[in-house]
Protein backbone atom coordinates (compact mmCIF):
# COMPACT_ATOMS: atom_id res chain seq x y z
CA UNK A 1 0.00 0.00 0.00
CA UNK A 2 2.65 2.60 0.80
CA UNK A 3 4.25 1.58 -2.45
CA UNK A 4 1.32 2.91 -4.47
CA UNK A 5 1.70 6.25 -2.70
CA UNK A 6 5.40 6.32 -3.53
CA UNK A 7 4.65 5.59 -7.17
CA UNK A 8 1.94 8.24 -7.24
CA UNK A 9 4.25 10.83 -5.71
CA UNK A 10 7.11 9.91 -8.00
CA UNK A 11 4.94 10.32 -11.08
CA UNK A 12 3.58 13.61 -9.74
CA UNK A 13 1.45 14.01 -12.86
CA UNK A 14 -1.79 16.01 -12.57
CA UNK A 15 -3.12 14.11 -15.56
CA UNK A 16 -2.69 10.74 -13.87
CA UNK A 17 -5.42 9.49 -11.55
CA UNK A 18 -5.00 6.54 -9.21
CA UNK A 19 -8.19 5.09 -7.77
CA UNK A 20 -7.66 2.47 -5.09
CA UNK A 21 -10.77 0.50 -4.17
CA UNK A 22 -10.79 -1.61 -1.00
CA UNK A 23 -13.28 -4.44 -1.24
CA UNK A 24 -13.68 -5.08 2.44
CA UNK A 25 -17.06 -6.18 3.63
CA UNK A 26 -15.95 -4.79 6.99
CA UNK A 27 -15.99 -1.39 5.29
CA UNK A 28 -14.29 1.72 6.57
CA UNK A 29 -13.64 0.11 9.96
CA UNK A 30 -11.28 -2.37 8.33
CA UNK A 31 -10.00 -0.63 5.22
CA UNK A 32 -9.80 2.92 6.58
CA UNK A 33 -6.86 2.41 8.96
CA UNK A 34 -4.96 0.50 6.28
CA UNK A 35 -5.40 3.41 3.90
CA UNK A 36 -4.55 5.99 6.56
CA UNK A 37 -1.31 4.26 7.51
CA UNK A 38 0.11 5.24 4.12
CA UNK A 39 -1.02 8.91 4.09
CA UNK A 40 -2.43 8.49 0.60
CA UNK A 41 -3.14 11.45 -1.65
CA UNK A 42 -4.72 9.42 -4.45
CA UNK A 43 -8.44 8.61 -4.61
CA UNK A 44 -9.44 6.06 -1.98
CA UNK A 45 -12.69 4.16 -2.15
CA UNK A 46 -14.14 1.66 0.29
CA UNK A 47 -16.07 -0.51 -2.12
CA UNK A 48 -17.99 -2.94 0.05
CA UNK A 49 -20.33 -3.84 -2.78
CA UNK A 50 -17.53 -4.50 -5.27
CA UNK A 51 -18.89 -1.92 -7.70
CA UNK A 52 -15.53 -1.58 -9.44
CA UNK A 53 -14.97 -5.33 -9.75
CA UNK A 54 -18.49 -5.76 -11.05
CA UNK A 55 -18.07 -3.02 -13.66
CA UNK A 56 -14.79 -4.45 -14.97
CA UNK A 57 -15.61 -8.13 -14.35
CA UNK A 58 -12.75 -8.68 -11.92
CA UNK A 59 -12.85 -11.91 -9.90
CA UNK A 60 -10.02 -11.46 -7.42
CA UNK A 61 -7.79 -8.87 -5.78
CA UNK A 62 -5.59 -7.17 -6.61
CA UNK A 63 -6.84 -6.50 -10.12
CA UNK A 64 -6.56 -3.35 -12.19
CA UNK A 65 -7.38 -1.52 -15.38
CA UNK A 66 -5.45 1.19 -17.18
CA UNK A 67 -7.77 3.70 -18.81
CA UNK A 68 -6.42 6.23 -21.30
CA UNK A 69 -7.45 9.84 -21.86
CA UNK A 70 -10.23 8.77 -24.24
CA UNK A 71 -11.78 6.28 -21.86
CA UNK A 72 -10.26 3.30 -23.63
CA UNK A 73 -8.90 0.42 -21.57
CA UNK A 74 -5.29 -0.32 -22.49
CA UNK A 75 -4.56 -3.04 -19.92
CA UNK A 76 -6.98 -4.98 -17.75
CA UNK A 77 -7.49 -7.77 -15.27
CA UNK A 78 -4.09 -9.01 -14.27
CA UNK A 79 -2.63 -9.69 -10.88
CA UNK A 80 -1.60 -6.18 -9.91
CA UNK A 81 1.05 -5.71 -7.27
CA UNK A 82 3.09 -2.54 -6.84
CA UNK A 83 6.08 -4.50 -5.59
CA UNK A 84 7.20 -7.84 -4.15
CA UNK A 85 5.87 -8.53 -0.67
CA UNK A 86 7.16 -11.00 1.87
CA UNK A 87 5.64 -12.19 5.12
CA UNK A 88 7.83 -14.17 7.46
CA UNK A 89 11.40 -15.31 7.08
CA UNK A 90 13.30 -18.34 5.85
CA UNK A 91 11.35 -21.46 4.94
CA UNK A 92 8.17 -20.00 6.40
CA UNK A 93 8.39 -16.94 4.18
CA UNK A 94 5.36 -16.21 2.03
CA UNK A 95 6.39 -14.16 -0.99
CA UNK A 96 4.04 -12.67 -3.56
CA UNK A 97 3.85 -9.78 -5.97
CA UNK A 98 6.50 -8.62 -8.42
CA UNK A 99 8.78 -5.73 -9.32
CA UNK A 100 7.88 -5.38 -12.97
CA UNK A 101 4.36 -3.96 -12.90
CA UNK A 102 5.22 -0.60 -11.34
CA UNK A 103 7.93 0.27 -13.93
CA UNK A 104 5.50 -0.65 -16.70
CA UNK A 105 2.86 1.62 -15.18
CA UNK A 106 5.33 4.50 -14.92
CA UNK A 107 6.35 4.00 -18.51
CA UNK A 108 2.74 4.23 -19.65
CA UNK A 109 2.04 7.36 -17.61
CA UNK A 110 5.10 9.03 -19.17
CA UNK A 111 4.78 7.76 -22.73
CA UNK A 112 1.07 7.16 -23.19
CA UNK A 113 0.08 5.37 -26.38
CA UNK A 114 3.76 5.00 -27.30
CA UNK A 115 4.43 2.86 -24.26
CA UNK A 116 5.32 -0.72 -25.13
CA UNK A 117 3.02 -1.79 -22.29
CA UNK A 118 -0.14 -0.51 -23.95
CA UNK A 119 -2.13 -3.43 -25.28
CA UNK A 120 -4.17 -3.50 -28.48
CA UNK A 121 -7.95 -3.34 -28.38
CA UNK A 122 -8.10 -6.98 -29.47
CA UNK A 123 -5.78 -7.99 -26.66
CA UNK A 124 -7.75 -5.97 -24.13
CA UNK A 125 -11.16 -7.25 -25.20
CA UNK A 126 -9.74 -10.77 -25.18
CA UNK A 127 -8.71 -10.22 -21.56
CA UNK A 128 -12.08 -8.89 -20.45
CA UNK A 129 -14.06 -11.65 -18.84
CA UNK A 130 -17.37 -12.29 -20.50
CA UNK A 131 -20.26 -12.62 -18.12
CA UNK A 132 -23.23 -14.89 -17.93
CA UNK A 133 -26.71 -14.29 -16.65
CA UNK A 134 -25.75 -16.30 -13.56
CA UNK A 135 -22.72 -14.11 -12.91
CA UNK A 136 -24.84 -10.98 -13.10
CA UNK A 137 -27.33 -12.55 -10.71
CA UNK A 138 -24.41 -13.35 -8.43
CA UNK A 139 -23.58 -9.63 -8.19
CA UNK A 140 -27.17 -8.91 -7.22
CA UNK A 141 -27.19 -11.70 -4.63
CA UNK A 142 -23.89 -10.49 -3.15
CA UNK A 143 -25.20 -6.98 -2.62
CA UNK A 144 -28.40 -8.29 -1.11
CA UNK A 145 -26.30 -10.30 1.35
CA UNK A 146 -24.24 -7.22 2.23
CA UNK A 147 -27.40 -5.27 3.00
CA UNK A 148 -28.63 -7.99 5.35
CA UNK A 149 -25.25 -8.21 7.04
CA UNK A 150 -25.15 -4.45 7.54
CA UNK A 151 -28.47 -4.80 9.37
CA UNK A 152 -27.28 -7.65 11.59
CA UNK A 153 -29.33 -10.28 9.75
CA UNK A 154 -26.65 -12.92 9.48
CA UNK A 155 -28.85 -15.82 8.39
CA UNK A 156 -30.07 -14.02 5.31
CA UNK A 157 -26.62 -12.57 4.64
CA UNK A 158 -25.17 -16.06 4.57
CA UNK A 159 -28.03 -17.34 2.40
CA UNK A 160 -27.39 -14.76 -0.31
CA UNK A 161 -23.58 -14.88 -0.05
CA UNK A 162 -23.82 -18.62 -0.66
CA UNK A 163 -26.15 -17.98 -3.58
CA UNK A 164 -23.62 -15.51 -5.06
CA UNK A 165 -20.83 -18.05 -4.64
CA UNK A 166 -22.83 -20.82 -6.31
CA UNK A 167 -23.89 -18.58 -9.21
CA UNK A 168 -20.33 -17.39 -9.82
CA UNK A 169 -17.91 -20.03 -8.55
CA UNK A 170 -15.04 -18.31 -10.41
CA UNK A 171 -15.28 -15.28 -8.13
CA UNK A 172 -12.59 -15.50 -5.50
CA UNK A 173 -13.86 -12.13 -4.30
CA UNK A 174 -17.19 -13.59 -3.22
CA UNK A 175 -15.64 -16.54 -1.43
CA UNK A 176 -12.80 -14.81 0.36
CA UNK A 177 -14.75 -11.84 1.67
CA UNK A 178 -17.03 -14.35 3.38
CA UNK A 179 -14.08 -16.30 4.82
CA UNK A 180 -12.79 -13.04 6.27
CA UNK A 181 -15.71 -13.00 8.66
CA UNK A 182 -15.06 -16.48 10.04
CA UNK A 183 -12.73 -17.21 12.98
CA UNK A 184 -10.43 -19.04 10.58
CA UNK A 185 -10.04 -15.98 8.40
CA UNK A 186 -9.32 -15.78 4.70
CA UNK A 187 -5.84 -17.26 4.80
CA UNK A 188 -6.53 -20.51 6.63
CA UNK A 189 -7.25 -24.11 5.75
CA UNK A 190 -10.41 -23.25 3.81
CA UNK A 191 -8.49 -20.86 1.62
CA UNK A 192 -5.86 -23.44 0.73
CA UNK A 193 -8.65 -25.95 0.03
CA UNK A 194 -10.11 -23.34 -2.31
CA UNK A 195 -6.75 -22.99 -4.05
CA UNK A 196 -6.76 -26.75 -4.58
CA UNK A 197 -10.28 -26.70 -5.96
CA UNK A 198 -9.38 -24.04 -8.51
CA UNK A 199 -6.32 -26.03 -9.53
CA UNK A 200 -8.36 -29.22 -9.94
CA UNK A 201 -10.83 -27.37 -12.16
CA UNK A 202 -7.96 -26.02 -14.23
CA UNK A 203 -8.97 -22.49 -13.26
CA UNK A 204 -6.69 -19.62 -12.34
CA UNK A 205 -7.65 -17.58 -9.32
CA UNK A 206 -6.51 -14.49 -11.17
CA UNK A 207 -4.93 -13.85 -14.55
CA UNK A 208 -1.12 -13.88 -14.32
CA UNK A 209 0.69 -10.68 -15.10
CA UNK A 210 1.34 -10.47 -18.82
CA UNK A 211 4.74 -8.77 -18.62
CA UNK A 212 8.27 -9.94 -19.22
CA UNK A 213 10.44 -9.72 -16.16
Amino acid sequence: MPVWQHIYEELNDPDFVLISAAQDTGGEAVAGPIFDATNPTYIQVVDENHVISSAFNFVNVPSAAWIDEEGRIVRIDESTYATTHQFGEGEAAFVFGNDIYAPALKDWVKNGANSQYVQSTDKVTGNIRQFTDEQLRADAAFRLANLFRAHGQEGKAEQYWKLAQSLNPDSVNFIRQDMTLTPEGSGGESFFKLVGEFASRGKEMSRPLDLEG
Binding site: D15, V17, L18, A21, A22, V45, S53, I67, E69, G71
Partner: peptide
Protein backbone atom coordinates in the same frame (compact mmCIF):
# COMPACT_ATOMS: atom_id res chain seq x y z
CA UNK B 1 -18.59 11.00 -6.07
CA UNK B 2 -16.12 9.57 -8.59
CA UNK B 3 -17.31 8.41 -11.99
CA UNK B 4 -15.87 7.60 -15.38
CA UNK B 5 -16.56 11.09 -16.73
CA UNK B 6 -14.18 12.51 -14.09
CA UNK B 7 -11.30 10.64 -15.74
CA UNK B 8 -11.76 12.17 -19.19
CA UNK B 9 -8.51 13.61 -20.51
CA UNK B 10 -6.46 11.80 -17.89
CA UNK B 11 -4.78 8.44 -17.58
CA UNK B 12 -6.19 6.34 -14.78
CA UNK B 13 -5.11 3.28 -12.88
CA UNK B 14 -8.03 1.65 -11.10
CA UNK B 15 -6.86 -1.02 -8.71
CA UNK B 16 -8.79 -3.21 -6.31
CA UNK B 17 -7.40 -4.68 -3.10
CA UNK B 18 -8.61 -6.06 0.16
CA UNK B 19 -7.29 -6.81 3.61
CA UNK B 20 -8.12 -10.47 3.03
Amino acid sequence: VVCLADLKGKKALIVTWSSW
